[in-house]
Design a protein around this nucleic acid. Sequence first.
RNA 1: GGGCCUGUAGUUCAAUUGGUUAGAGCACCGCCCUGUCACGGCGGAAGUUGCGGGUUCGAAUCCCGUCAGGCCCGCCA
Length: 597
Amino acid sequence: MRTHYCGHLRAEHIGETVTLFGWVDRRRDHGGVIFLDLRDRSGIVQIVSDPVRTPDSYGLAEQLRNEYVVKIVGRVSQRPSESLNAKLPTGQVEIYADQIELLNAVRKQMPFQVSTGEQEPVREELRLRYRYLDLRRERMSQNLRLRHQVNQAIRRFLEDQEGFIEVETPILTRSTPEGARDYLVPSRVNPSEWYALPQSPQLFKQLLMVSGVDRYYQIARCFRDEDLRADRQPEFTQLDMEMSFMNQAEILALNEKLICYILKTVKGVEVPQPFPRLTYAEALDRYGSDKPDTRYGLELVDVSDLVADSGFKVFSGAVKSGGLVKVLPVPDGNATVSNVRIKPGGDLFKIAAEAGARGLAYIRVREGDIDTIGAIKDNLSDAQKQQILERTGAREGHLLLFCADAADTVNATLDRLRQAIAQEMNLIPADQINLLWVTEFPMFEWNAEEKRLEALHHPFTAPYPEDKDDLKTARAQAYDLVYNGYEVGGGSLRIYQPDLQQQVFEAIGLSEAEASDKFGFLLEAFEYGTPPHGGIAYGLDRLVMLLAGEDSIRDAIAFPKTQQARCLLTNAPSGVDIHQLKELQVASTYQPKPKES
RNA sequence: GGGCCUGUAGUUCAAUUGGUUAGAGCACCGCCCUGUCACGGCGGAAGUUGCGGGUUCGAAUCCCGUCAGGCCCGCCA
C-alpha cells in the first residue's frame, strides 16, 4: 500500500518507486504532458504523466479533476533544472506516474475550491456547512495540527516532566447554582430529574485532591449555555489542572514553565520568565482592564486628586460622588483624532457612550499652549493644568482624553478607547507575545441587579489569610494569565476548611441549607482530611486561536457552532421524535410568537 | 432582549449610486497546447440579485418585514 506521504519526498528518494494516495489539488494539462499536484495531510508533490514516459497513466490523467482521490504508483525523479520549484518542500522532485488508479471522483460541483485557500476567502457560512472541505484547506489543516501539537506538548510536559496524571470527570453531573446557565439533560431512569453538563470540572478536581491524586490534569470539555462571541463557544475545551501542597508562587512558576514549553515546542518562541505580574488594582488603574494588552503603551493616568475641587463640575462632581477622573494620553493624537470624533455623533464618542460614559473631555497640547473647551480652560488654574500635563507626560501634539464618572464606567470607557486608538494608530506589534499574571482579585463584586455579593472568580477561591476577617473586602488568592489582552487562563488557591467555605457561601447569600443541598458532598469531603490545594484552567481553544494568529475561536475548533449556537454541518440542534420525549417524560412548552398582521 | 454590518452565477467579487440584455476571475463543459506549478489560448453553459411585500414608468440599488451569517452590548462565577 502507501509507501510515503506526498510532502515527505525529497531528492534522497530519487530512483525509488513509491505508492502515494491523496487528493488532486490541481491539474495542469498541457496537451502533451499533464501535471498533477497530489495532496495528502503532509503536503503536495508534483505528479507527471505524458504519453511517452508514462503511457499507461496518461489516459486516466486526462480524466482527473480537482479533489479526485487517487492512488499513484510512480518513480521519484529529479526535476529538470529549469523546473525546480522553490516554493514547495518537495520542489526538487516529481513523480512519473506509471499507474494511476481513480479511487473516487467528485460527483457534485465543489461548493468552493480547496486549493485556492489563501488567495480567496470563502463565506464562513459555507465553510461551516461543508466543514470537511474547509478542513482540507491549508489554513484549517494547519490549525488542527497546531492544536494537536499544543495538546501533545501539554501532555509531554505535565506527564513526563511534572508527574501529573489525567483523570476523566463526569459529563453528566449535577446542576450547581452560581455561574453560567447550565445545559440540562433529562434522566429517563429518574423522571423529572436532570443532569447538567459541566461548566468546568471544578468540584471533581477538588475532590480528587481530597482523594490524594496530588497532581491532576484533564483536557476537559466544558459547557455553558450563554450567548456566543468570536472568542466564546457553548462547548469549549479547558486544560484543567489542580495540585496539592503548593503555594501560589509555586503554582505560577510551574505554569510559566508549562506555557513556555508550549510556546517553545509549537512556535519555537522563547519567552522570559518570570512573567510580569500586575495586581488587579494596578491593572485597572493603569489600563482600565483586568486583562490588559501590554504590547503597547497608552497607559491611563488618574488625575482625580488634581481636579477634585476644580470649578469644572463634570470633574469635581465625579470625584465628589466617589468616582474618578482619568486621562488617556494619546501621543500625536492631535493629528489623528479630530474634535468631531470626540463629540456626540463621533465614533469615539459612540464607543465611550456604549461603555456608559456621558461624554469625553479633551485637552490638546499645542506649541506652548493648550487647546480645550472653554469650561475647562476657565475652571482649571494654571497650576492644575501644569500638573495634569506633567503627570500625563504630555508633550506637543498630545491629545488628552478625559473621562469623569463612576470608576467602573471610566475604566471601561478608557479601556475601549485605548484599544480602538491603538488599533487605528497601528501601535500593536502583531507578532509580539505579551504574557502577564493578574493577581489579588477581590473575592467578591456587587451585583446591583440581585443586590448581593457575587464571587468574582468562584466561591471556592481562598482569601488571603490576612484578609480573612473581613471577607466582603478581602482579596482572593486568584490569578489570571493574560495573553495579548485575552484571558487565557485563571485559577486560585482553594478553600479547604469547611467553616471558611461556609462563611464564603454566606457572604454570597447562599444559606446553609442551600449550600448543603448543592455542595454538601464537597463540604462533607472536606471533613475527612483535605490537603491545601489550588489550580488553574486554560481556555485551550482561545490559546490555540492566539497561537494560530486567528481572530475567532471557531478557527481553532474542528466543528464549531454559529453565533446562533447551530451546527451548519449537522443542523443541530433539531427536533426529536415524540417517542423520545415521551420516554423522558419531557414536553416542550414553547409557543411560537403569534404573527402580527 | 438590543445596536451595527453582510447576503448578486458553484465560488470570490463588480454593476457609473434608480435606467434599457446584471458583468469579470476561478470552478464546471468542449476544443487546442510536451515543462507547468495561481500554466496558457479559443469557445460554451451557468442568475427567482436570500425570501416576501411596498414605492416607482422602471428596483440588485430606495422603504417595510422576514431568514441566514458576522461583530458588539446585555449575558458569560
